[in-house]
Design a protein around this nucleic acid. Structure first.
Length: 509
RNA sequence: GGCGGUGUAGCUCAGUUGGUUAGAGCAUGCGGCUCAUAUCCGCAGUGUCCGGAGUUCGAAUCUCUGCACCGCCA
């Protein structure tokens, strides 16, 4: 079995500042990366920034700075956010880095050498105020569909990639690999798009200069997607692969927002085909967040700022909410009331309180010293047996990137723990000295259950996982399921103090 | 306009190949417990399964049709 795993976020465009959408994508990747590590995989987790293109060039000019100065500034904000959100990426790539430019040039030369790139003319309608090209059919009565102003026909020399050549090969690949594009609804969209026919793709521009020059023809810079998509292999050191990273990790799982699906599911695979490289393992397009029921937009000024959320609610609460609230792949709504509701009922009442009441009872009944379990009753047995079943289920669900389902499965364990306390009524057992052993078994089972729960929860909420491990006297830096997911990991005799509340309830008026 | 999807409890949704009384969480109401962060556990609901027609012994599920909303393409 291949114990390597490569997961990527898109590289984020520096013309935008980080918002909840960026955070969502990156966190989803982080959860998967952490889970895979926890399962013994060597993980490469890549994120980064897309820094070229006309919009950046223009924005920088307007700010009186160079494009690179602008990028440097924005990159810091992304990096700071990932740190704040506890993201465990192993590399951060910038398209302005030499290693990236090198790979892009090599990739261009390779495809050109195979005869799939040719020089032609790119002809379209251009809206000067919007600085955007439109195709004939996109125009509304000959005017710009965005602003309604006049457009003019512009003819520009351009390099083209023979994308049309790969149409059938791509269709076949998508048909043969049902998991390639997910969710299914997106797969169908792409399939019907490709079946309608692929045109050759313009991959260079002469109208601006902030980009990677075309090898051998400096008048042209490479079109932003040819440049950007290549990051997934340039970060691995392709083509020289001096450190063997490409060999080890490619192909990747790409997690993206649904808006950039076509570039990843059509352009990128055909580029790879032309270069003779294996296609990505999986491309998963997730949905968008609305905010309090409204579309997020700069003009509505409702863009959710992740830093503020973390300061207000804590990292783990945000991480939990984003991945629990909505099925990955569907759109969701972000609202403060939903967030507070989740934190209070799931985190404070269910998980936090389970840890509190259990550790409190251990203190009260055993002075905090973990007793050895005795023989198991039917009730005990039923609880214990849930764990291996859930571990297996969660593994499947995360394989399918069904984060919310995985969390629901974990929460079934937490509920079972709370119910187990009710069923066994330790406070009653404690009154009868003859039931001391039975009481000890109950306490052991609860704490051992909490130990496994903490490891399951750790990829989603690393701080919480570590906190609970520490409370139990385990290593909070070793949040690994592999080899530690068997029942009975806790050693009787360890001292466990009553835990402070993990998640204080958020009181609302 | 073409293709695809969705419509189930107050809210968010799950419902496998058609098969007993249609489910979960949250919210609501009632009861129980006292270890716990006033937390936990149990019980109770309410549903024209979007409308209509059809196939079938039997339809939330299959077919046709109408309506509403959404996505992709043009």
């Amino acid at each position: 079995m291949d114990k390597h795993f490569y997961i990527t976020t898109p590289i984020y465009y520096v013309n935008d500042v980080p918002h909840i959408g960026h955070a969502y994508t990156t966190l989803a990747c982080d959860v998967l990366a952490r889970y895979k590590r926890s399962r013994g995989y060597e993980v490469a987790f890549l994120t980064g920034t897309d820094e070229h293109g006309q919009k950046v060039e223009t924005a920088a000019k307007a700010n009186g700075e160079t494009p690179l100065e602008l990028a440097d500034r924005v990159v810091k904000r992304f990096q700071a956010l990932w740190e704040k959100l506890n993201c465990s990426h192993t590399d951060f790539i910038r398209t302005t880095q030499e290693r990236h430019k090198h790979t892009v040039c090599e990739q261009f030369k390779k495809i050109e050498a195979s005869g799939d790139i040719y020089l032609g003319y790119y002809e379209d309608w251009y809206c000067t105020p919007c600085e955007t090209f439109w195709t004939e059919t996109q125009l509304l009565d000959g005017t710009c569909p965005d602003c309604g102003r006049e457009t003019s026909k512009l003819k520009e020399e351009s390099y083209f990639f023979k994308m049309s050549k790969y149409q059938d090969q791509l269709i076949k690949h998508i048909e043969d690999h049902p998991e390639f594009i997910q969710p299914k609804s997106r797969r169908n969209e792409i399939l019907s798009f490709v079946r309608e026919g692929l045109r050759d793709l313009s991959i260079s521009r002469t109208s601006f200069s902030w980009g990677i020059p075309v090898p051998g023809n400096e008048k042209h810079v490479l079109y932003v997607w040819f440049d950007a998509l290549t990051n997934y292999i340039s970060a691995l050191g392709y083509p020289e692969d001096k450190e063997g990273q490409f060999e080890k990790f490619w192909p990747a799982v790409h997690v993206i927002g649904k808006d950039i699906l076509r570039f990843h599911a059509v352009y990128w695979p055909t580029f790879l085909m032309a270069a003779g490289l294996p296609l990505p393992e999986k491309i998963f397009a997730h949905g968008w967040w609305t905010v309090e029921g409204q579309k997020m937009s700069k003009s509505l000024r409702n863009v959710v700022e992740p830093n503020m959320l973390v300061d207000k609610y804590g990292v783990d609460a945000i991480r939990y909410f984003l991945l629990r609230e909505v099925p990955f792949g569907l759109d969701g709504d972000f609202s403060h009331s939903a967030l507070v509701n989740r934190v209070n009922s799931d985190l404070a009442n269910d998980l936090g309180n389970l840890v509190s009441r259990t550790t409190a009872m251990l203190g009260k009944y055993f002075q905090g010293e973990l007793p050895a379990p005795g023989p198991l009753s039917e009730t005990d047995q039923a609880l214990v047996e849930r764990f291996p079943k859930t571990l297996e289920k969660v593994d499947k669900q995360l394989e399918e990137m069904a984060f919310n389902k995985a969390l629901m499965s974990i929460w079934e364990l937490i509920s079972a723990g709370n119910k187990y306390i009710d069923d066994t009524a330790p406070w009653t057992l404690a009154k009868n000295p003859e039931q001391q052993e039975q009481l000890g078994t109950v306490m052991y089972n609860l704490l051992e259950g909490i130990r496994i729960i903490s490891l399951l929860v750790a990829p989603f909420m690393p701080e919480t996982g570590a906190k609970i491990q520490t409370i139990l006297g385990c290593d909070g830096n070793n949040l690994v399921l592999e080899g530690q997911d068997q029942w009975g990991g806790l050693q009787p005799g360890v001292q466990i103090e009553k835990a402070a509340p993990l998640f204080p309830r958020i009181e609302t008026e």
